[in-house]
Amino acid sequence: MAVPPSMRFDFVNSPAIRYFFAVAEAGSFRGASEQIGIAASAIHRQIGLLEKQLNVDLLVRGRRRDGVKLTSAGELLLYRVRLAMHQIGVALQEIEGIRGAASGKVSVATTDALAQDIFSIFLRDFSRRQPNIRVEMQILDRRRLIDALVENQVDVGLCFDLPVRVGFRSLAEFQMSSSVLVPVDHPLAGRAHTTLGECAQYPLALPIEGDNLRGILNQIQIASRIRPRVVLSTNSFVTMRDAVAADVAISIQTRLRGAFANRDPRLVYVPLKDTIARYSLLTCCVPAGRQLSPEAGLFVQDLLQALHEELPEV
């Protein structure tokens, strides 16, 4: 609501509001004078000017013009002044936080799907808290991500199903359910669960040779004598998702939970009940023996907290 010209007052440059607040808090002009070190006569004069400008009494003066009580207008103004002072205090704290915040660069390695599902959400909040930290993210397949960790090229890595290996150490592992990703109108879309054998009856989009998931499917093929029809082989899980959304194939992917869940309305996740492929481990890790910089330490701390809040840890 716009303030009428007759009621406009230079609240920023005038001391009247500060004097009014001091009197309201102290309960008297004398008490306010002692607290802020301003003569009582000057306080009287400024508050009088404020009342004249607003055309309303803010204080009920005592007989000796010392003790005061607030009028209803004074109570309203005091309430709003307190709110404003609180907001100013919050702003000053935030400014101080920005001025004293860590700065520098954090290098991260992850897959395209995790960059899309987790980091797109996490970085939004992290960048607000730490605006002076620049995140450098490399999108890598699992093999190249392991190499980047072992060769000390990145500060932190986030990936599924990393092997136990010298050269990097795990900070946390989260157990995720494996599912079959199908179009919303696919015959499997309404199922409570399915099997790898049933999936082999449909065109598949799968990871390239050497990936754990591809190895599992090879084992299923040997055991069930069903040869899957692979129409797309790639190291990009986002590309596999796009193929499913376009009804080119179905795929086997890990379903994240909570804020990180993929909510594409074109896709449905159907849980797998095969024991051999039921779960995947999401691992957050750092190079072995590497002393993280302060900014990398902040990043890892915030990332682990976000993951713990949304995902089940092993």
Rank of each mutant, 00 (worst) to 15 (best):
L292C: 00
F174I: 13
R241S: 08
I146H: 09
E136L: 14
A42Q: 06
L50N: 04
I133F: 05
G297R: 15
L196R: 10
L78E: 00
R257C: 08
Q305T: 09
R191W: 09
A73P: 00
D247K: 15
M85G: 00
I139G: 05
P287V: 11
P5L: 15
G297Q: 12
I17N: 02
V244G: 14
I252W: 04
E51Y: 01
I133S: 08
V60M: 13
F237K: 13
N235F: 10
K105G: 00
F11P: 01
V230Y: 13
I139A: 03
K52G: 07
L311C: 09
I88S: 10
E309L: 11
A243K: 04
A39M: 06
S41E: 13
Y269H: 14
Q53C: 06
D147H: 13
D10T: 00
K69L: 13
G289A: 05
A249I: 01
Y79I: 00
H44K: 01
T111D: 13
A259G: 02
H308V: 03
V248Q: 10
P187K: 00
E309C: 11
V150A: 08
R8C: 03
E309K: 09
T111P: 02
S41H: 11
G37Y: 10
E309R: 12
S293V: 03
I250G: 00
R229Y: 01
Q201V: 09
V231S: 12
I17D: 04
L162T: 01
R165T: 12
G258M: 09
L292I: 00
D264N: 15
G62F: 02
Q175M: 13
L256Y: 10
I146W: 09
P183E: 07
S14T: 08
V106Q: 05
L140Y: 03
F9Q: 06
V60T: 08
R169V: 15
E310N: 12
P131F: 08
A306Y: 03
P207T: 04
R82D: 03
R169Y: 07
F260E: 06
N132M: 10
D125Q: 14
F119I: 04
R266G: 04
S236E: 05
V314D: 03
T234D: 04
D125R: 14
G62E: 03
V180R: 06
F168Y: 15
E310I: 12
N132L: 15
A40K: 08
G67C: 01
V106G: 02
V135E: 06
L76N: 07
L50C: 05
V3R: 14
L311E: 03
I17R: 04
Q301D: 14
H186L: 10
R45I: 06
D242W: 05
L232T: 01
I252D: 01
D147L: 12
N55A: 11
E96M: 13
Q46W: 03
R82E: 07
I139N: 07
F9N: 07
